[in-house]
Amino acid sequence: MAILVLAEHDNAALKLDTAKVVTAARAIGDDIHVLVVGHQCGAVVQAAQALQGVAQVLVADNSVYEAHLAENVAKLLVDLAPSYSHILAAASSAGKDTLPRAAALLDVAQISEVIAVVSSDTFVRPIYAGNALATVQSHDAVKVMTVRASAFDAAAQGNSAAVTTLDKVFAAKTQFVSQSLTVSARPELGNAGIIVSGGRGMGSGENFGMLEQLADKLGAAVGASRAAVDAGFVPNDLQVGQTGKIVAPNLYIAVGISGAIQHLAGMKDAKVIVAINKDPEAPIFQVADYGLEADLFEAVPELIACLS
């Protein structure tokens, strides 16, 4: 049977995570369908059609789905489930909101944060903040899974999948009221190729201005450890870690971050890790490819000056 991938988007653009989930789906089987649920999302449909490996794009375009409420999207997934062996979504806030509902309605167990596919019914997922990996096998008729996108490469472009329009509309008892979005000229944290993150060692929110200058020089996103977020230095949408965003950029620069397990779980898959910390015993140096034992308030301005 076919594999269904739930597309993540904002009605205007397809999120990169969807292309990575498609790669995970291709490791399971060949007949891959992408479900686009939203309103006036033609550009998203075209982007989904272009992903290599996608055989068909299912489109549920209705004003009811504009806010992507988990309640009605889950009902649509359940309605489609008999035609699919697997239902996949990114392990993002949207995926974590929608797929557990669908799994509960289908009376199956959800498999969360999949990082590798062993076979069509066996998968690898991290446990204990990534310090151990569990290989799990599912005998459910429909396997509902969230995929850790940072563990997979994005599917390439260059396809032209068929499009099927769905006319079923499932209303929700919940109502969308409003949303508050953080607007930034910098790259989105989850999709950035370079990330500059600060920790408790930054001392204050004002000092994060240094990291913002460095990020602007590098064309990078700005992140933070949970300790920095809990201290009120920066908003929680910048948090990298087990309870924040899981990232895997080409370059991760950790400034004033000690390297707690919770933080390492969110960034240790980065291609190159650079750590700047004055404590030679900081755990971050154990995972760093390059480490600079120095006072960040001297090292970061010097680095910015070199890039000017």
Rank of each mutant, 00 (worst) to 15 (best):
S197W: 03
A171D: 15
Y84W: 08
S138M: 01
V114E: 03
A24R: 01
A13D: 12
A172F: 09
L69N: 10
I28K: 05
M1K: 13
R226T: 02
I284R: 00
P280I: 03
L35V: 11
V22D: 01
D295E: 15
V247D: 00
T98A: 07
G256V: 09
V73Y: 06
V54K: 04
Q157L: 10
G209I: 03
N159G: 01
P249I: 02
P235S: 13
E188T: 11
L292K: 11
G266A: 14
V78M: 10
H33M: 09
T164I: 12
F208H: 02
I32M: 15
A134Y: 07
A141W: 08
A154C: 15
A116D: 14
P301W: 09
D121F: 05
I32E: 02
V44R: 03
S180L: 14
I284A: 05
G53N: 06
H139L: 11
G198Y: 02
A129V: 07
T122C: 14
K143G: 00
F123V: 15
A149G: 01
L6Q: 08
T165H: 14
V54Y: 03
A48I: 01
D153V: 14
A282V: 06
V142G: 00
D61K: 04
V117F: 11
D97Y: 09
V144S: 00
I127Q: 07
A224S: 10
R148N: 06
V240E: 11
Q239D: 13
M267L: 13
T182A: 11
V136E: 04
D140S: 05
N131I: 14
V163Q: 08
D237K: 14
N207P: 12
V287N: 04
V21L: 09
P235T: 05
V5Q: 00
Y128K: 15
A7R: 01
L106Q: 07
I276A: 02
L16W: 10
L214K: 00
Q179M: 13
V22H: 01
S92Q: 06
G223W: 00
A132F: 15
A270W: 06
A129M: 13
V73Q: 03
L307D: 13
Q262K: 08
L99Y: 05
G203Y: 02
H39V: 07
S85F: 08
L303D: 04
L58G: 00
Q46N: 15
G205S: 06
E293K: 03
I257H: 04
L181R: 10
R148T: 05
G38R: 01
Y84D: 06
V36Y: 01
A215K: 01
T174F: 01
V114I: 15
P301A: 08
D121I: 05
N191K: 11
A109Q: 10
I127R: 11
L133W: 12
A171M: 15
Q56D: 10
K268S: 07
V147D: 03
